[in-house]
Amino acid sequence: MLLALLCLTTENSSVSMSQLISGKVELQVSANALWKCLSKDLANLLPKLVPKLISGVEILDGDGGLGSVLIMRFQSDAGDSYQKEKIVEMDDVNLTMANEVLEGGYKQMGFSYFKTRFQLKEISASLTSAECTVEYETCGPQMRSPEEALQASFFIVKTMEAYLLSQ
């Protein structure tokens, strides 16, 4: 209850406390192939690639592109665990996408605002740099760190890399 009150107070405050954390990883696949997995096939691939983590992804509104709202359901012994996200940036030319958490997930872990942004850059035909930036605002004690979120994002793209290399 106290965390919810802290979050409500922070969300209504006019003072923004956004923070950023970012990192890069190189992947042994083409930028276009990885982009297709990340932007076009995400809802279908995630439950198949990480079934012990994600039980399902459903597009609630939109076509999976910019402005779409999706819900990720996580495997959890504690009951219904989910994260609802909105795709707030998608650029097929610059291979950039960003998702903002609307409810559940990080919003239940001490963050009043949480956005993950990916940008892929082709280094060569079979080498891609994936930069991930996490932008967040806190509203009390965090159950997960932004660094853990960054590492989870890299885990997802590394899993996609392994999938693409196995095809």
Rank of each mutant, 00 (worst) to 15 (best):
E135G: 02
T116E: 03
M109F: 08
M109G: 08
S76D: 09
V57W: 01
L53G: 11
N44T: 15
Q119R: 07
K121V: 02
L127K: 14
S129Y: 01
D92G: 14
E100A: 08
L120T: 02
M143G: 15
V134A: 00
E131D: 07
R144L: 05
T128H: 07
D61P: 00
E137K: 13
R117A: 05
D91E: 10
G67C: 04
Q151M: 08
P47R: 06
A130F: 00
E148W: 13
G110S: 08
L60Q: 10
M72S: 12
R117S: 09
S81K: 14
E103F: 09
E147Q: 09
I123R: 04
D92P: 10
I71A: 08
A149S: 13
F111E: 03
K86T: 06
V50K: 03
D80F: 04
D91G: 10
Y82C: 07
L150S: 06
Q75P: 01
E89M: 11
L120D: 00
L127S: 13
T116N: 09
E122Q: 14
D92S: 15
L49S: 11
S126D: 06
L127E: 08
S129L: 07
G64T: 12
D61C: 09
I54G: 07
K86E: 10
Q142H: 03
E131S: 11
D63E: 13
S68M: 03
A43R: 01
L53P: 00
L53C: 04
F114G: 04
D63C: 09
A43I: 06
G65L: 07
G65W: 11
P141I: 03
E89V: 12
L95A: 07
S81F: 10
L95N: 04
K52C: 02
Y106K: 12
R144N: 09
D91F: 11
K107F: 02
V93W: 00
E131H: 02
R117I: 03
K48W: 05
N99W: 06
Q119A: 02
T138H: 03
G62D: 10
K52N: 15
A130R: 01
D92I: 14
V157H: 00
T128S: 06
V50H: 08
L46G: 03
M97K: 13
C37I: 11
V88A: 05
M72W: 11
I54E: 02
P51L: 03
E135C: 01
G56D: 13
N99C: 15
S39L: 11
T96Y: 06
V101W: 01
Q119V: 07
Q119W: 00
P47F: 04
F74L: 13
E85T: 08
I156D: 00
V57Y: 04
A152R: 05
G56L: 06
K40L: 12
Q75C: 15
L66M: 11
L127C: 07
R117Y: 05
S145C: 03
G104P: 11
T128L: 05
P47Q: 03
D63I: 10
G140L: 02
L66R: 04
V101E: 01
V50G: 00
C37H: 11
G105A: 15
G64Y: 14
S112P: 08
P141N: 10
A43Y: 04
R73P: 02
A130C: 13
K40Q: 12
V157D: 01
L53M: 07
D63G: 04
M109H: 12
Q108C: 07
N94M: 15
V93T: 15
A152V: 10
L70R: 13
L70Q: 12
S55Y: 03
F111I: 12
L95M: 15
K86C: 13
G79V: 12
V101L: 03
E100W: 01
